[in-house]
């Protein structure tokens, strides 16, 4: 009897962990159905990537239970991990294909890079805040996202060594679109960028390079809910 009890006690953390994992998977599945598919995201690889990447492992511990909520979450240093729908929408808009080389500006927790990395061969992501960049790099490596490379630098300059890119995803709002990024976009390439203050209304803008011409398209307004910094 005692031996049985000890076995159950020893198994408890394992069972509890498994339960937790199952619960997160169920939450993720619900998130994909309700927030992604039901809202009109149709790009199969994007939906599949959103279904696979464990978002709860990209948020601070205190936010794990909210990881699959329909909202952005604070990740520290005044930065947020975008709302799941926004991640899916920005990914779908660039129509990533397997042989794509994608640059992300503003790695944050690394979640968006992880989602894109499930679809394309190479993802390069840059983070300006060293603490965030370092933890994103370690997290992505630990979770096995081997096709993502993280650089800690000012994203303004892009990543010339790996240019040109098929697509560039800018996750941080900018009051101007850095010329080096436009320069590093392939002919026919697409860049998606939120325009506006990160704390108020933003519009997602798609920039397309067509030969000598550069065209933009304001896609939709996005509002990021403000959050207290996680480190406060």
């Amino acid at each position: 009897m005692l031996r049985k009890a000890i076995c159950i006690l020893l198994l408890f953390p394992v069972l509890s962990f498994a339960d937790d994992q199952n619960e997160r998977e169920r939450e993720r599945e619900r998130m994909v159905e309700r927030q992604i598919v039901n809202r009109g995201i149709e790009h199969g690889p994007t939906i599949e990537a959103m279904r696979t990447v464990p978002r709860h492992l990209f948020v601070p511990d205190a936010q794990k239970r909210n990881a699959y909520n329909d909202s952005p979450l604070p990740i520290g240093h005044g930065q947020t991990i975008s709302q799941p729908y926004i991640v899916a929408y920005m990914t779908e808009v660039i129509r990533p294909e397997t042989d794509y080389r994608v640059l992300e500006i503003g790695a944050g927790s690394g979640y968006h890079a992880a989602v894109i990395s499930k679809i394309v061969d190479e993802v390069y992501t840059i983070e300006i805040i060293p603490e965030l960049g370092q933890s994103a790099r370690e997290r992505l490596a630990r979770l096995g996202f081997d096709n993502v490379e993280v650089k800690i630098a000012d994203g303004y300059h892009g990543w010339e060594e790996h240019a040109p890119f098929d697509a560039i995803v800018v996750t941080a709002a900018a009051e101007h679109i850095p010329p080096p990024l436009v320069e590093q976009l392939k002919d026919g390439g697409k860049m998606i960028i939120p325009v506006g203050s990160p704390f108020f209304t933003q519009q997602l803008t798609l920039v397309e390079k067509r030969g000598e011409e550069i065209r933009t398209r304001n896609l939709m307004p996005v509002r990021f809910v403000p959050f207290r910094r996680a480190d406060d």
Partner: peptide, 18 residues
């Protein structure tokens, strides 16, 4: 700051340094 650049609403035709 090393990353403080101001060019609000800059045209995409601009290719120089900010």
């Amino acid at each position: 700051s090393d990353a403080l650049r101001h060019a609000p609403g800059l045209s995409l035709a601009y290719t120089g340094e900010i």
